[in-house]
Structure formats: C-alpha cells, structure tokens
Design a protein around this nucleic acid. Structure first.
Lengths: 347, 347
DNA sequence: GTCCGGTATTCAAACGTTTTAATACTCAGA
DNA sequence: TCTGAGTATTAAAACGTTTGAATACCGGAC
C-alpha cells in the first residue's frame, strides 16, 4: 500500500541498500544508479518512513515542548519560535499542554518518553516531581532546556528575558523623563528581578528607595499619600491596567499625574484606551534560542544559559512629571514609539 | 542501555512474546506469569518504545495540529482542547505552526507524513495547494478534520462556532434591550455568517435592514447620520474596540448613546476600560470536539461536521437606548454578566 | 589462466515491537 | 501406553530503515 524503500528497490531491480544509500547521496553508489533512484523516488513522491529510520538510528527526530495551559498568547509565541527552528532542522515538534500540576506534567513526560523524543523544552515545570523526572531524562541522554523560567539544576540550561534589565529599562525611562519618585506594583512582595532592576536604577541615579506594593488597596493608599510617586513600574501589563484603573478612581490622570510602565507588551496595550508604555519581551526569540540550544545539545555540544534583552515600547502612558522644569527637551527628543517594534498582526 | 521488552524477557527467562502479551493482559498468558512480568516491568519503570510498536502496527500514535502563527490566544485555546483529548487517549500531539502560506503549510504536511501521523486537525489551510494535499492524506487513509474554518470538501468534516447563531445572539440581545436601529461593523462586505445572523434577527423582529460598514470612516459617517444606529454588532472584539474609539471621537457615550457588542470574548474585553458585551466562542470545546471527531474517524467511524453554540457575555457596553420608554424592566431583569462564563486566568 | 585493485552492488543483521502459527506440556480418559 | 483436549509458551516473521562487511564484476598486468 504505502510506498516504501523496498518497493522502489524492487521496481528498479536493485537492493534496498542501494536505494537507501542513493537517497542520501552516498558516494558509494554509481552516479547513474543514484540518479535513477532519486528520479523515481521524486516522481513517486516517496517520503521515507521515519518510524523505521528512527528505530534503526535511535533518533526519533521529534522534540517536545511542555507548556502550561495559561491564557494569553505569551507561550504561544514562544511555541512559534521553537516550531520555526525545529522545522528548519527537520525535527517534528510534539507539544504537551499541562495544567501546571504534577500529575499532568508526569503524563506528558511519559508520553514524550513513549514517543522517544530526542529532546525537551519545558516552560511548565514547577513541580518538584517533574524536576526529578527531567533530571532523569538528562541522565538518559535526553537533553532538556528550561524556557522562560529560572532553571532548577545546574545541568539544565535555560533561556529567558533579562528581567532585571527590563525593570531597569522601565525605571530609567521614567528617570530620563524627570521622575524622581518611583514605585513598583507587582503580584507579591517575594524577590523579583524586575523589581530589583528598578531598584538598582533608582539607586544609581540617586533616587530614594522604590516602594513596592502588591495589592490594589496598598496601591491606592500609596497614590493618596503626600509623597506619592509620579512614576509607576509594574510587573506586567495586567498590573498596569489595574493600576491605571486605581489611579483614575483616585482622580489621577495618566500620564499627567502618573506615568505607568507595563511589562510584556501584550496585545491590548496598543489600544488607544491604554496606549501603554511597556517593556517587551522577545518571546519568539526566546523560543528560537531555546530550540537552538536544544539542537546544539543534540549535536553533543554544550549549551550556555542565556538571558535575552527586553526592549522598551514607548507609548502615551508615560510623560515628564507635572512640576518638571527640566527635561522637557528629553520628552520631545524621545519620540513616542521610538523603540517600538510593533509588528503584531491581529486575528 | 535502554530498557526493552527483550531485556525484561531475558531477565525472567521467558520469550519476548510472553512479555508482550503479558503487558497487554492477554488471557493467553498464565495469571502467575503475567503478574511476574507486570511487576518487574513496573519496578523497572519500563516504558514501551513506540517506534517499534508503531512500525509493527502501522499506527504512530501521533496526531497533528496545523495552525497559523496568528497572535492572540484563540488557537492556543483550541490547541489546549485538542491536547487534552489527545492525551486522554494516549495520542501524542505534533503541532505545525505555519505562516499561513502554502510553502510552510506544505513543509509541515511533509513533516507530518514523515513522522507518519495517524490523523490531522487543521486550522491553517487556506491555500489550494494545501487543500489538495489534505485530500491526498484522506485518500491515503489519514483522516483530516477542519477546525474553526469552513471546510472545502464534503469528505472532510469540520467543527466551528455557529457564527450565524452568534450574530443572532448579539442582535437579539440588543433588540431585547429595546434597540430598533442596529448596524454591523466588520472587516469587509463579503458574505459573513455573523452578519447574516444579525440580519435575520432584525428581520424576524420587524426591524429595518441592518446597514453594514467595513471601515472606520464609513462607521464614523454612519454614526453621524440622522438615523444613526443605537446598537452596533461587530465582527470581533478588535472591531468593537475600534468602534468604541470612533464613537467616542464622535462624542457618543457607550452605552448611553451607542450599545456595542463584540465577538470572541478576548481577554481585554473584561477590563474596566472596555467592559464589553461580547459573544464568546467555545474555543476549548472546539478543540475537544475536533479531536473527538478525529478519534472517531481513527476508529473507522464516520464523523459529522458540527457547529458549536456561542454564548453571550453581557457586560457594560450595552444598555437600553436613551429614548426607550418600554423595556426598562427588561434591562434590570437581565443582570450584567448573567450568561457570563468568565473563567479566565491571566498570565 | 590467475591474480590484483578498484568500483558497484548486495547481504544480513539490527533496531523494538506484535502476532500468527506452531510447539511443549499436563492431565483425563480409554 | 496412547489419544485428545486444553493450556501455556515460544519461534519466527514482519514492519521500514540503516550500515559494516562481504561479494560480484571488470579490465588489465603478469
């Protein structure tokens, strides 16, 4: 039924070995024979059966990407990057969508193992059971790359956005506009590189320490205080959106009374209602780099962990603070959207 | 190195055949032997090598999903639905991210063929070359399901949202609120089921024909006209966002002067800045149903094309029209968010 | 006629499973 | 002791490919 190498061999009255060699241009087969084989294969639309090949070569030609089923397009774009590179190199891409829980992660890893994937990129790997599993994969010779998350073992390289640089970028943008009182709004008060970057920048420019809030109530309180900040850095665009709301409830206008910087450059931030200055992560590149690293390891090379630089997308939610005498030049000098790399398509 | 069935056989001093049969609980092997085999296999963490199995059974245990690399989380959620069901049935899921062009679609299909996927779900399949390819897959016995797109051949079943019902839902919501003059804003004037549904509802309730615009200019003109609509149905949330902007530019308030209904229930619509009433598509279910259909076909059964019902998410962008005497009861009767199924998590 | 060196091709085993048909064993009954 | 009927196990082939070793062929030199 299906066209196989053997059948081609039979048609041309040569051995399967000859066909196999001819198809991979092995110099051992005579030029004339090789040509004959390749022509027929092309005409008949022969596609080698990877199952046979894989069985023999111990390489399935599949790589896997495990991600959690989180709404939003963030991992989607990473997936695209991974997919592009995988395809360019002839690898098939399996995905395992987990619910972020150890059980479904285990199910996926088991499936990957059954299918004998050659390597794994993982974005969903919080659970410690999962981590053990992944280390076991490494030991078995299946390389793993952690993507968009800190790694948990020195043997496993990772790639993600340089979050500290992102925080710094946001803070420095505000500082450059003349702001002297910054604050930070994020999901929790736990250690956070984005906040660290922000704090470092403030320190470097001689500003007061940057206060940090983790709830809308605390944010409202902060914005109502005498020494309220004029510039707000947030952990994510979603927090920036919340902050905008809180600020407006408090009668503050954006950007006149408060400049707000988001993080992630999510789709909605470019809508006129938000027009949000934000730190963009290079999702697609993260995916591409992750896959590049995986390919390197599949070739037997080592792969270094990497941090990728974020970039600032300047929009209308940031401006010089109200009372600022200086820096008006700055403001007009740095055009809106200057560093913008808005090349999204909408659905 | 890797643990194989043969090695287990050797350890227990039985034949590979016995082990194979024992592992699949075949009644032919003695209960005692079977138990011995299964115990050892479990202890050693044996995972069968799918490559060998697939080669023998002519079933790779892989299905593929081909989607275009469109921003937004729409296909992402479909992917999740597909992934869930695939995993539940032990299938591995390959994805092929295309750029929507025939060339990359062909590349992906070729890769799928190499890996010998058992079936394919496709959301990206506009190109006619791709369509030919897909028909060829069908002929070769690899079933195809078209997902979230009209099908192009009677042999290939498809599943998507009932767009006409969606349009009807939106229009009837507005009509129920007391609106008598509706309009529709979409990407083009080409035939469109969402518009059809809207038009049908208007007709059924004795309203005037629903005018239709496809550009912001035309929309602005329409909103400035004497007989301007009080209710606007849009093709997608993105158009609703544009419409909101256009309306506000024209000095119209939402919802007092203009009620707007979106389509898709994208993430940003729930933000207070938009608070958009919208028609939600059941993306996840679309994915699940698509995979269910594929599984049915893999079992040799036929699969019927299906339309899935959308649902209305009522938020603050719709209200009774300004001059409406009647229906005030209606308005308060139908609470905000009544039919809402907002269970999103944010990243 | 034999032997050589080289080139072109093929053999055969292997990869890890599945499965059909065959074999070995055991116990009853005659 | 033989037959027959189960029951439990196994041998062997097959799936489609790869690959190192072996073979076949050929023209020329001795």
């Amino acid at each position: 039924m299906e066209l196989t190498l053997k059948k081609i061999a039979a048609m041309l009255d040569v051995s399967p070995a000859t066909v196999s060699l001819a198809l991979k241009q092995d110099p051992r087969v005579a030029a004339r024979t090789g040509e004959r084989v390749r022509t027929l294969a092309r005409e008949l639309g022969y596609v080698p059966n990877n199952l046979g090949r894989a069985l023999q070569s111990r390489r399935s030609g599949l790589v896997a990407y495990m991600l959690a089923d989180i709404a939003g397009s963030f991992f989607n774009e990473i997936l695209q990057g991974i997919g592009e590179v995988a395809t360019e190199h002839g690898y098939g891409l399996m995905v395992g969508v987990t619910r972020g829980c150890a059980a479904s992660e285990e199910t996926q890893l088991r499936l990957f193992r059954e299918k004998r994937v050659d390597g794994i990129v993982v974005s969903s790997g919080g659970q410690s059971a999962t981590r053990d599993q992944l280390l076991r994969y490494e030991e078995r010779g299946v390389p793993v790359i952690v993507c968009s998350s800190e790694t948990f073992d020195a043997r496993i390289p990772h790639v993600l956005t340089d979050n500290e640089a992102g925080g710094r970028l946001a803070a420095e943008h505000l500082i450059g506009l003349g702001h002297r009182r910054l604050a930070y709004f994020g999901p929790s008060l736990a250690p956070c590189r984005r906040y660290d970057g922000c704090a470092v920048a403030a320190l470097a420019h001689g500003l007061a320490p940057v206060p940090r809030v983790a709830s809308e109530e605390d944010l409202a309180r902060l914005l109502a205080s005498r020494s309220r900040p004029t510039g707000l850095v947030t952990y994510a665009d979603t927090f920036a959106a919340k902050a905008k709301h809180v600020a407006e409830q408090a009668g503050l206008r954006i950007p006149q009374d408060l400049s707000v910087v988001g993080f992630d450059n999510m789709w909605f931030t470019s809508l006129p209602e938000f027009d949000l200055t934000t730190v963009a992560q290079p999702q697609r590149d993260i995916g591409r780099v992750a896959m590049d690293m995986l390919l390197a390891r599949l070739r037997g090379q080592a792969a270094e962990s990497r941090l990728l630089a974020p970039s600032l997308v300047v929009r209308g939610s940031t401006a010089a603070p109200a009372g600022s005498r200086r820096k008006e030049d700055r403001k007009s000098g740095r055009l809106r959207g200057v560093r913008c790399q808005d090349t999204r398509t909408s659905r």
